[in-house]
């Protein structure tokens, strides 16, 4: 399956899973909100140009927002993590070895320690931004800290489960593709 087709299918799947499975789960607590959809942006291929990455993130965030009733809410966190992603990958990946040989970020292509750092930082940033936007209408600092911590924890757990369930084959990038 071509990378483009695979990512188009993922686009739809991540939004549907977030909108119709995770958003339907009655919350354990106000602070625990299971977000998983942004993993789509983390899984995009290494080779995607930076400006195109931003545009994809914009469209992705907007589509996600339309399903939850607030079209603006998911846009900004998606844009921020899409902007930070290339810098993080540059820091975490030794330039000469893996980047050229693997298609997309995963446990196998980056090694589990750098990949965990990559996921944890971007998850934290995403949640901090999204809760910050909500915080502006709530205005309670405990809410901000509690919700970022609670949601980050549950999201990391979900991402861990997703990685275990769908062990993506670390495909080597070839000239033919």
């Amino acid at each position: 399956m071509s990378s483009l087709l695979k990512n188009i299918i993922r686009f739809a799947l991540f939004i549907l899973v977030q909108a119709f499975v995770l958003n339907k789960i009655p919350a354990l607590h106000q602070f625990i909100k299971p977000y998983l959809y942004f993993l789509y942006i983390l899984w995009l291929p290494f080779s995607i140009p930076r400006s195109f990455l931003l545009i994809v993130a914009f469209i992705f965030g907007l589509s996600m927002g339309y399903f939850t009733g607030n079209p603006g809410l998911y846009l900004i966190p998606c844009l921020v993590i899409a902007f930070l992603r290339p810098f993080l990958i540059n820091i975490l990946l030794p330039q000469e070895t893996t980047e050229v040989s693997y298609a997309e970020p995963s446990l196998k292509s980056m090694g589990w320690a750098p990949y965990s750092v990559y996921v944890i930082i971007l998850t934290f940033v995403h949640h901090a931004v999204i809760v910050f936007i909500e915080w502006m209408s709530v205005g309670n600092f405990l809410f901000f800290v509690g919700k970022v911590a609670g949601s980050t924890a549950i999201s990391l757990l979900l991402i861990f489960i997703t990685e275990m369930l769908f062990s993506r084959k670390a495909k080597f990038r070839t000239n033919a593709a």
């Binding site: 400006s51 931003l54 079209p71 603006g72 844009l79 209408s137």
Partner: peptide, 27 residues
């Protein structure tokens, strides 16, 4: 270029968010 694009898209997003909070009607 990427940075400028980021700023432009961020501006658009903020406009969408603020407009929504004012009128509850998305673009």
């Amino acid at each position: 270029f990427t940075f400028f694009l980021f700023l432009v898209l961020l501006g658009v997003s903020l406009a969408i968010l603020v407009n929504y909070n004012k009128t509850y009607q998305g673009v």
